[in-house]
């Protein structure tokens, strides 16, 4: 199963490297968000720094959302052929999840420095913990995005329906990552650990539950 998942992932990465259909628009959109934030909120005012974790994560979620929503649309016209391949259906889910994790990680790697520069702030002192929060948060977003993307890809509205399906689910995740990041900026950075626990629970639920149910989606 891991082998077949690897091949599907490799196929999608090759397609992305040649076509640049996901990362390029989503990445540019991410930078546009940072610029618009700069216009909407005056970065020279000190009040903005308290809002930075929320602004950063909302920006990352919205940009990632563009990318993860399309992971299943890649095969919009050839889904049948992929399902006819003699491989475990679970491999397909694992491959798309891995693709989405990679996409969101690349996006965050571009957007985080851009946001800190354009909004005139700095990363928290404990960069290691910050990176752990980012990685866990993005895995959770990618997992929920993969599950909801699989559903939305089969609807008439495609990506139009995705925000309504996906974003309410990510509200506990958003609460977790923003609170954890804010704690790192605050006087007691250790307070982040309980929020990291919440993020980890979210990750586990949204990897395990959709993985168990994915089989049923491919039957019809």
């Amino acid at each position: 199963m891991i082998r077949s998942a690897g091949w599907i992932l490799w196929k999608d990465i090759t397609l992305e490297l040649r076509g640049r259909e996901l990362l390029l628009p989503a990445g540019v959109f991410g930078l546009v968000i940072a610029m618009l934030y700069g216009f909407a909120f005056d970065p020279s005012k000190s009040g903005l720094h308290g809002m930075f974790p929320g602004l950063l994560w909302l920006g990352i979620f919205f940009a990632s959302f563009l990318a993860v929503g399309r992971a299943f649309s890649i095969e919009a016209d050839s889904a049948q052929q992929l399902l006819l391949a003699p491989i475990d259906r679970g491999a397909l889910f694992v491959a798309k999840l891995a693709l989405n994790v990679l996409l969101t990680l690349v996006l965050a790697a571009v957007m985080t420095p851009a946001f800190t520069v354009l909004l005139q702030t700095a990363l928290p002192a404990e960069v290691g913990t910050f990176l752990v929060i980012e990685a866990l948060g993005l895995v959770g977003f990618a997992a929920a995005g993969t599950a909801m993307g699989a559903l939305a890809a089969q609807t008439r509205l495609r990506e139009l329906l995705l925000p309504v399906l996906l974003l309410p689910f990510t509200s506990p995740l958003l609460l977790g990552v923003v609170s954890a990041t804010s704690a790192l900026y605050g006087p007691t950075p250790a307070a982040a650990s309980s929020w990291i626990g919440l993020i980890a629970i979210f990750d586990v639920i949204f990897i395990v539950v959709p993985a168990l149910l994915f089989e049923f989606l491919t039957e019809v």
Binding site: L151, Q154, T155, R156, L157, L161, L165, L217, E219, V220
Partner: peptide, 20 residues
């Protein structure tokens, strides 16, 4: 309810909305 509304094929609508 929006998801149900957006899937035309009945069998698909039944299973997809149940999974959701």
């Amino acid at each position: 309810l929006l998801l149900r509304e957006a899937i035309d094929q009945p069998q698909k609508r039944i299973v997809y909305s149940a999974v959701y």
